[in-house]
């Protein structure tokens, strides 16, 4: 079991308020991603759950039990750190066995579980190496192995992929997701990368300045962003925003259109925006056009990779009327 509830959790470091007031309910077996720009308090929130920091106020319940004041060792959670935090003086085997040794498990049990974890993570042939003789991805796996053997109530991941190169990151992303399918244990995963959040999560918590902007499934967040911040943060490339008279036409303070929700043509039509092509980023499958729209500024448009554009071409944009997001003056979605 591994349900996690935060009730009115607050955290300040001295005068600085990091988390003003957060309440969350994470269900058993869920894969929840905390995502947000750097400094939004997502890592602090994870450390509060882990017990590595004290809450200033509020309660943290694990499986309904109040753990607010419990030390990390007693919470039954496992954590994978950004730096992996492997014990450099121990072999891979001893690293993975360490939590079991701390739990005073028997020798046979330790061996059995270490072997199992090593097999699951493809580490069997590295068991007698030291962490410094491993590659980044292997170190990552050892860190995960060390977490698995504890059979924790929940796994906490603190930006675990940010030290890996791009290709490996995609691989590990899949492996962690696969692991979650196998283990069905609650996982909380912190990242600043919205692609990781979208691809891995059952539900995403979007954090900004210590506040939960929205908590929902990836598609919910994409389709029904609660506010301008979430709309801008989720989705790649970013949503285009327009203020002023053009927004007023839709009875809103500002409107947003995703790059993929435009119709593009080379001839003028009713209700279209006229612009000049700036940079065209051609990815093969798609092309991202940066268009200087008259009176509205720079916009990003996604088109298929077959059309070609050159710098300075005149283009006409038609936003898909059913997919225009409208926001009030406070940035809330209408």
């Amino acid at each position: 079991m591994g349900s996690i509830s935060l009730k009115n959790v607050k955290k300040s470091f001295g005068e600085v308020q990091i988390i003003p007031d957060i309440s969350l309910d994470i269900k058993d077996g869920e894969f929840v991603v905390f995502v947000g720009p750097s400094g939004c308090g997502k890592s602090t929130l994870l450390r509060l759950i882990a017990g590595l920091e004290d809450t200033t106020a509020g309660t943290i319940l694990l499986d309904g039990e109040d753990m607010t004041k419990a030390p990390p060792a007693r919470r039954g959670l496992a954590m994978v750190f950004q730096s992996y935090a492997l014990y450099p003086h121990m072999t891979v085997r001893d690293n993975i066995a360490f939590p079991l040794k701390m739990a005073k498990a028997s020798k046979e049990e330790i061996d059995k579980k270490v072997e199992y974890a090593a097999r699951t993570l493809n580490l069997s042939s590295y068991l007698d190496r030291r962490p410094r003789a491993l590659s980044g991805g292997q170190r990552q796996r050892v860190a995960i192995g060390r977490a698995i053997v504890r059979e924790p109530k929940a796994f906490l991941f603190d930006e675990p992929l940010s030290n890996l190169d791009a290709a490996l990151r995609v691989n590990m992303r899949l492996e962690i997701t696969e692991l979650h399918q196998q283990l069905k244990t609650t996982m909380i995963y912190v990242t600043h990368d919205q692609v990781e959040a979208m691809t891995m999560a059952d539900r995403i918590v979007v954090l900004n300045a210590g506040n939960v902007e929205q908590f929902g499934s990836p598609l919910d967040l994409y389709k029904k962003p609660a506010n301008r911040f979430v709309a801008g943060f989720i989705g790649s490339p970013k949503m285009n925003f327009v203020d002023g008279p053009e927004a007023a036409k839709h009875n809103a303070h500002s409107i947003g259109v995703r790059p993929e929700h435009f119709k593009l043509s080379k001839t003028a039509e009713a209700g279209t925006w006229k612009g000049k092509v700036g940079v065209a980023e051609q990815l093969g499958s798609d092309t991202f056009l940066h268009v200087h729209v008259d009176g509205l500024g720079l916009m990003t448009i996604r088109t298929d990779g077959d059309q070609t554009f050159s710098h300075g071409d005149d283009v006409y944009l038609t936003p898909d009327q059913t997919r225009i997001y409208r926001f009030d003056a406070a940035g809330k979605a209408i």
Partner: peptide, 8 residues
């Protein structure tokens, strides 16, 4: 950056 317990 530590808990009350570590400080104690």
């Amino acid at each position: 950056m530590a808990t009350a317990q570590t400080r104690t």
